[in-house]
Every structure is written in C-alpha cells, then in structure tokens.
Design a protein around this nucleic acid. Structure first.
Length: 256
DNA sequence: ATGTCAGGAGCATCCTGA
C-alpha cells in the first residue's frame, strides 16, 4: 500500500499536474492540502475517472484538505480538528481506509511571528497534540500526514540561520512538534533516512528549486502499530520541476 | 527588501496569503 501527501496550492490550477503524477506514481491513498476551492468546486469527477474516490473539506480562497483512495471508500471520521469550535479553517480531515486511520492536515503557516497568526499556529499545534494523544490511546493504526509547516531540525532546511525567526522554524514551534512526536509517533522519512538531506518544499522565488534551497515541512507520522509495516519512503522531486507545478513536491511511504 | 504564484474583487490592477 502506497500513501502520499501533496500540498497542491490550488487543486484546480494543479489538476493536470496531479493527474499526471497519479498516473506516473500510482499512489493508493493520497492526502491533499491547500485545495483553494469551495466545496462544490472540487474536481471529484476527474479524480473518479482516474480511479480515486475522494472526501474533501473545501473553503473559499484558502486552505482545504482531501483524502483520495483507490483501495476502498474512505470512511470519514471527522472534518475538523477537535478542540476549537470557533476555528473555521478547513485544515483537517480524518478517515479510516483498510482499518488504518488517516489524518490529513494542513497546519497554519504562522507568519508573521510574533502575532495573531503565530498564536493560532501554536494553539493549533496544542490541539493536534491533544488529538494525537487521544488517537494513540484508542490504539488503532494511525497515520498523521500533510503539510505541517514545521521544519523539525536544522538538518531540514538549506540555511537554518536564515529561518530562526520564521514561524516554520522558531524554537517554540520546533519544541511543540517534538512534543507531538515524542508522544509515540515515528517520523517515517527520518526513520528510513536518518542522515540524508530531504526537502519537500522549494519557494517559487529566486530559483529556489534550481539551487536546491528547500526545506522539509511535509511529514508522515506513524503510530507504533504502523512502524513495523514501513517498507519504503521518498519524495517525488521530479514533480516540482514540471510546468505549472506546486511549490511542494509529493511525499510518499509504502506499507506492507 | 527582493522575488513568484494563486484567488478574489471587479474589470485593470490591486490586495492577501504563502
């Protein structure tokens, strides 16, 4: 079973790229972020024609998350992250597929920091920690994946010194992510490649991809029951080099 | 500060967000 996560930066602007990627890379389950489409403008039919059934939570202009599957209908569990009924952003959707719970998330960017957006990011992380704890206590195999907007360590960005004041790398954000992971999650890419430079995002500015000035902010966190099934993982870097592409590349894992 | 995309308002070209 191959699972992937991909921040598409507008599903409709990206549809040709997404369809080509699905055809070439053949993931079974896909988590998408930054749909940038209202609920009724999600291209469910085009994805259905490619072999995938979808559940999604859209929003006008920004955010938006989806789970696609070609190995059985995703059984939706929830479409908001618990803990704040006032939160109107579409940033979380969770479903069960083949007895595995999959949480697809788009964590707030948080810039500029400090400020209200940064505070929202910290609160969102606190809620994710609470929800993560609850999922681990419930016991089923769980995968939390998506665009975390967190650079976990200095090895995950091309020039860490330039990012120390940025909301993706500030110490309190890294600390919060560490707190989440140490609940019992395994960072799948780092587990398989402890010493490699791995990036999943390259800015559109200043030829960042050409210079490999990237960062690793899209992650797969595995609950203990999933870890023994992890066989392979990677980043579909080539997709970042295509025409009209996202600023993120797809990230994937393979499970037994 | 720079730079590049995308969506939205609204009709040209800004603005916001990332």
């Amino acid at each position: 079973m191959k699972l992937a996560t991909y921040n598409v930066n507008s599903i409709n602007a990206r549809l040709p790229v997404v369809l080509r990627w699905l055809d070439e890379c053949q993931p079974d389950v896909v988590c998408l972020q930054e749909l940038k489409a209202v609920q009724e403008n999600f291209p469910a039919e085009a994805l259905e024609n490619a072999g995938y059934t979808s559940i999604w939570h859209g929003q006008k202009s920004w955010n938006g998350v989806a789970i696609l599957s070609r190995i059985g209908q995703p059984e939706e569990i929830c479409r908001t992250l618990p803990g704040d009924p006032e939160d109107t952003h579409s940033r979380y959707i969770e479903a069960k597929i083949n007895e595995v719970v999959i949480g697809c998330l788009y964590l707030p960017n948080g810039n500029p920091a400090p400020g209200p957006k940064f505070d929202y990011k910290l609160r969102w992380l606190d809620r994710l920690i609470a929800h993560g704890q609850s999922l681990l206590e419930q016991g089923p195999p769980v995968i939390l994946t998506g665009d975390f907007n967190v650079i976990p360590t200095e090895f995950d960005v091309y020039k860490p010194e330039r990012w120390v004041d940025d909301a993706l790398f500030r110490p309190e954000i890294r600390e919060s992510f560490r707190k989440l992971v140490t609940q019992g999650w395994t960072d799948a890419l780092r587990k398989l490649y402890p010493d490699e430079t791995i990036y999943t995002f390259w800015d559109y500015f200043r030829n960042a991809f050409g210079r490999n000035a990237g960062m690793r902010i899209d992650h797969f966190l595995l609950s203990p029951a999933v870890v023994p099934r992890l066989r392979a993982a990677g980043v579909d870097r080539q997709v970042r080099g295509w025409e009209k592409t996202s600023d993120h590349a797809p990230v994937w894992i393979e499970l037994d």
